[in-house]
Amino acid sequence: MYAQMVKSTGSGAKSREEMTPDEAAFQDKIDADIKIEPRDWMPEGYRKTLIRQIGQHAHSEIVGQLPEGNWITRAPTLERKAILLAKVQDEAGHGLYLYSAAETLGITRDEMTEQLLDGRAKYSSIFNYPTLNWADIGAVGWLVDGAAIMNQVPLQRTSYGPYSRAMIRICKEESFHQRQGYDIVMKMAQGSPEQRKMAQDALNRLWYPSLMMFGPSDKDSVHSAQSMAWKIKINTNDELRQKFVDQTVPQAEFLGLTIPDENLKWNEEKGGYDFSEPDWGEFFDVLKGNGPCNQDRMATRNKAWDDGAWVREGLMAHAEKKRAAKLAAQQAAE
């Protein structure tokens, strides 16, 4: 997902007997669906895992601006340009909300930014894939936002108050993102032969990377078990992936587009589709930095941050001068 393979600290969920009284009281609150707030006591592992997870989620929003931003200047109509710009702007906003949530855990946004820029922190693998034709902008909304929403909707109930509140706001704002994406793909699937070709091409390239967004199967992962006990992860990766496939296949059929999977078949017994796993070797390559766009994405973010340093410093220096002048005026008046 936007936060993939977040490792919790330690070796997995503790049993009740192993817990200290503080830890037991903490787990009781979580089990009773009482939100954890910034100043409440929390296990160090919970705090660290959350910083990592929320940070990764925030970074994904920020880097996620780039593949779609790639088409803002080439959007084919004024209305499409406005919609796309508003959507990519929303992503900046969502990054901001999430950074703010993480900041309540005792880390600054600048620290998190540095971690992203020097490669210590990760972001979702999906944003290391290119957007090559206009239908990709539709497919990103339809598939990528569609996959993200699968994860984000349950996260509104996550145990950490500020994270939960950020997710509620994000989900509210995101509701138009997937629809606008589907709307683009629909127009193209019903359009000229070239447009249909673009739409199918986008689906072909983005289908498996979208499935990878949920991360490899984690049914045996101790990290996931701990995160689920803490309610900072609500569903397993496989559950969400299955739900996504089941939702998306009929949508593709409606458009007359073909999902690039020969093994895709309805399974009456399980009440869902059977489908091919993505190439997990490719997934780990992308995580290691070898995706098609890793270098470009990081170079763009680094350049934006470095080029902006004088602006951030300049505006801060002016604010400090103003504050000092105001103070001096007050003192002179006394």
Binding site: Y97, S100, R109, L315, M316, A319
Partner: peptide, 12 residues
Amino acid sequence: HVGSLHAPDAEM
């Protein structure tokens, strides 16, 4: 309360 943000001063 709706959230937080960064700014150099109150006006900004």
